[in-house]
Amino acid sequence: MNLAIVLNVVIQGVLTGLMYGLMALGLSVIFGVVRVVNFAHGEFAVVAMYATYLLFVGLGLDPLISLLPIALAFFAIGYFLQITLVNRFVGRSEHEQFILLVGLAIIIVNGLLMIFGPDARPTNLPYSLDSFEIGPLFIDTARVYSAVAALLVSAALFAFFRYTTTGTAIRACADNLTGAGVVGLNVKRLYAVTFGIGLACVGAAGSLMVTIADASPSLAQSFTLLAFTIVIIGGLGSMTGALVGGVLIGVSEAMASFFFAPSMKSMFSFALLVAVLVLRPQGLMGRRA
């Protein structure tokens, strides 16, 4: 086995994994703070893919640019969704939250199906087929750009939570809800901001995702499961964990596709998920409850 080929596969997996990580980051933030499981997460990613596709076909906007307006729009959607609907479910039993969001997921995915049909919509970027050549390595240009963008967005998010007042307040909510209410934080608004941020992450990740996959309703469910798998492997509520988990799953998928069959790639992710659930339920980077 040629080492260069394996290295190529690994690098490709890492780059994809960073996009996965950004998507999972959104899920992790929402769960970590609002304590609601967003089972429509992958569905939102696919909506962002379609939006990116439309902006590209209609206005010729590059995904790396349309990422910003899409993230902004998704923030607004998330904020609105939390205030109007999800907030009623905060503190209700997990299965009720789950059913609400499954209902939403069903509507989104079938709505997309009704509008766009089942056929995949490719975003053919002018640099889709370009690659950087470093010695024996061939690295897709589009993937590198996307991965860097994913890292930048994640970094911005880390900075937001560390250095802004709102970010600190949200972390306070996550740590101690009663305390946050006592010191006069507007928990409802902070939750809405958090849900907005979560969706902005998944919106940005969806935009980037068009560089590696064609928009199709059938992706939605697997993205949701992917995001959950990553977040649990990385540790729910841990932001670094989401990125690390994303990279781990990205590499595991790339290796499985290469050494076995692309159709079997998620088998390894699920096996990993089961192993983590049993052996280290707090995830790789999580704190024990």
Binding site: L100, V102, G103, L104, A105, I106, I107, N110
Partner: peptide
């Protein structure tokens, strides 16, 4: 997808 959207809406 029409039926599914309806089911989703009913669930919610």
């Amino acid at each position: 997808g029409t039926k599914a959207v309806f089911y989703g809406l009913t669930l919610m």
